[in-house]
Nucleic acid binder design. Sequence first.
DNA 1: ATGAAAGCGCTAACAC
DNA 2: GTGTTAGCGCTTTCAT
Lengths: 337, 337
Amino acid sequence: MTDSKPSMSDLAKKLNVSKTTISFILNGKAKERRISEALVEKVLAEAANLGYRPNQFAQSLRTGRTNIIGLMVEDISNPFYASIARLIEEKVYQNGYRIVYCSTENDVTRGKDFLTMFSTLSVDGCIVAPTQGMEQEIREMHEKGKSVVLFDRYFGNDGTDAVMVDNQGGMYRAVEHLAARGAKDIGLIAIALDDPEKEDRIIGFKKAIADNGLATYVFPLPFKGGYEEYLQDISEIFSRNKLDAVVFGTNYLGIAGLEVINQMGLRIPDDMAMISFDDHDLFRIHRPGITVVAQPIEAIAQKAIDTLMSKLRNPALTKKTAEVITLPTSLIVRAST
Amino acid sequence: MTDSKPSMSDLAKKLNVSKTTISFILNGKAKERRISEALVEKVLAEAANLGYRPNQFAQSLRTGRTNIIGLMVEDISNPFYASIARLIEEKVYQNGYRIVYCSTENDVTRGKDFLTMFSTLSVDGCIVAPTQGMEQEIREMHEKGKSVVLFDRYFGNDGTDAVMVDNQGGMYRAVEHLAARGAKDIGLIAIALDDPEKEDRIIGFKKAIADNGLATYVFPLPFKGGYEEYLQDISEIFSRNKLDAVVFGTNYLGIAGLEVINQMGLRIPDDMAMISFDDHDLFRIHRPGITVVAQPIEAIAQKAIDTLMSKLRNPALTKKTAEVITLPTSLIVRAST
DNA sequence: ATGAAAGCGCTAACAC
DNA sequence: GTGTTAGCGCTTTCAT
């Protein structure tokens, strides 16, 4: 009936031992406190028997640590982020942490709200794919000693750790590949949240186009939630420009683009060669297969966690070193090029 | 420098007011406590000024409520669950809750671990796509007064709310559709965690096969993490049986199946007609398009949240009513059939 | 080798 | 109208 959780006091009372002792034993400090084997046994046994679980909130209130990690991505339903979330989940649980996630939808306000939430929740650290406009807030968290690891996007030299991917290089090789296959009019359709001149994927694209002496067709698109709108935008781009190849800056643009191409009855790669950033089941299985610039998802997750965990374990590090890791992408050539 | 968060005491000291008063004001109980307008203003202003944020842990410790909701799915990186997670996130935040998620991988032990974690974390409620074998634990949570809403899978009449989908009916109509198109040897490739006789999708399939006087080809597969293994299993099934149509019980089996079909050079729908449970970008965009039994993702998320929120708002309900909502699936016919 | 006691930040019954 | 006070369950210093 009164099945409510047993507290440390319950244990203490039942065993005629003080809370202190119980606490030490349960926290593995029995040795250094020289508590007798016998007592340790007894306490452990009774704790197990009663199904005792420490109250995380009391614990957090006392210690200031929460064992919660915040994960902030653009959209948790995007397979790229979902896969990362899955991997991070796996690795984080092994270290006794839990994850609270949220999707920013590239909205600064949402992003900041969530940062506040993380702060309110007192997460021990967080892994964030930031939107732009959050620079200030991220820096503040960092300065307050919270461990933050950025990925997917970051802001120059602000002292925050980041796990990035070689976006410029990846894009450069994609264009190179297309050019080598004889493409002349290569378009780039990519999200530009901010200034297109600052987007690495766009920069890499332009550089490759220039190096290959080709004409530049860049179509920066603002971020919008709706898939339908992208279909619309892309089909307009296709009808107004006679391209023989196209590169998409993200998986969802690639997907939308592929749908448009198919709808318009364009043949890949004869009428239109195609490459998308990010691999996806769709790109692998589609006939013809779609060439992609794949991001090393596993490595991104691993590095992000490793970085965060090492800061968490050694808080002194947090304020000091800031490392920006850049992981290579890989061009997976399929029949679309 | 000492930028650590201001507490209620700080506020109280600064304004020469007691914590009590602050607490009441901040919790919107100023009216009923008949606190003067002026004071309310002053407190609110100073709170905003100092950037005061209540300490969630102290709050939780005191009230027993945490504003955290646990979300447990089979695999957060599966688009079906990821989409649900996204929608649930959206709806939940509007109500001031946060989400902690975890992926069971259909592993009972993991599932139970996470349930314990939810319990330790004192989540206010949870939305769970259970694995089998968790019946007992779910029932216990429920009996302890925790709000639990199941989806995707549930255990008969155990008094827990559940949001389900008409799996039998969806599968039935898929087979019916195939039969109407002249398919004779229709195979079903589906995960059977437990007894295949208890899996609704398999039941629906068999019923439809019987009603249409066809031969029964059911290939229950155990759940395994690895995609490669499914490829293997499926291609064996295809080489050992001469089917003219196949139905896949879940999106990842459908994806693997499609990959196998393409690899084997089978033509859809001439050599092999195909239907998969769950819609997916891949099925929509693939040429030919793949007919699917789509689940109403949005509705599932909405119902789950609605149910949970109403229980949370009115705890008295929790122990009483248990509702099993069954949502319809829809057959989206494409070129694969 | 063990325990008493203070206090983390907050809420709410009960005074005044 | 506003303040006092007693905890929520835990950790940890200091005493014994």
